[in-house]
Amino acid sequence: MPVRRVLPQMVLLLLLAGYTAFAAGPFLWTAVMSLRTTSEIMADPYALPSVLHWQKFPDAWISSNYATYFKNSAWVSAVCVVFLSLFGAMAAHCLARYRFPGNRVIFFLIFSTIILPPQITVIGLFQILASYGLIDTHTGLILVYIAMQLPLTIYILESFFARIPQELYDAARMDGYSDFEIFWRITLPIGMPAIATSAILNIIYIWNEFLYAVVLLTSDDKRTLPLGIQRFLGDQLEDIGMLSTGLMIAVIPIIVVYVLFSEKMIQGMTAGAVK
């Protein structure tokens, strides 16, 4: 193969290898540390494990209350994703399909809220939830997450739904289906790749979210995984080994979700890019 053709490929390969190392390196390092004790890590942070301490995983799960945190995170994430997908899809369907005065203004107003950083909204939300007695409840946290993620969800779904041919809706109308039935039987099934995309992004965000959880939850039995991981960071001692184990436990569901749904996610993100 001529050098002129090989050279650009080599450069591209090097760039991709560098990026992969940059992205996957910290993850692999944490994975290695999750199987080492804190004293081993302190002695040599970058060494490979001489003994694989698999026992650290059940220890973290049972003795550090990880089972509760995991269950809480799973519950909060699942409820949020179900409602976000449903409400987001309904709103996106209306904004994408129906011509009514103010359609784009409403869409812009909803979407513009994503520019507000959480640090600004957290105090106001705390006061609102306190006045409704929702502090230190999963219901309160779920409501906040839904409110925070709904604009992005609507944005993703609206752009996908708008590309569904109008004729499908016209055909369903002529077949006698109501607006809600059309949403339920046409938009939702056809929009599944986009819904999967938004669901994955929402799961990742909610699963990892720390700020709202730390402000709005106080009881240990209500805490989510990111707060549980924080417990390993003490004032006097940082249990890096267990922290890494906790991180790996926390990240496994995300990897599973990604592996299972990545194809749908790519479909959702690239829909319309090619005919």
Binding site: E167, D170, A171, A172, M174, D175, G176, Y177, I190
Partner: peptide, 26 residues
């Protein structure tokens, strides 16, 4: 009234049988 569209407007998530039966079911 029944209408045949330019893009056919077949429901992509349904089989041919379901496409044909969709209107009758409703």
């Amino acid at each position: 009234i029944a209408m045949v569209f330019q893009s056919y407007a077949l429901y992509p998530h349904m089989t041919v049988r379901d496409n044909l039966a969709f209107g009758l079911r409703r």
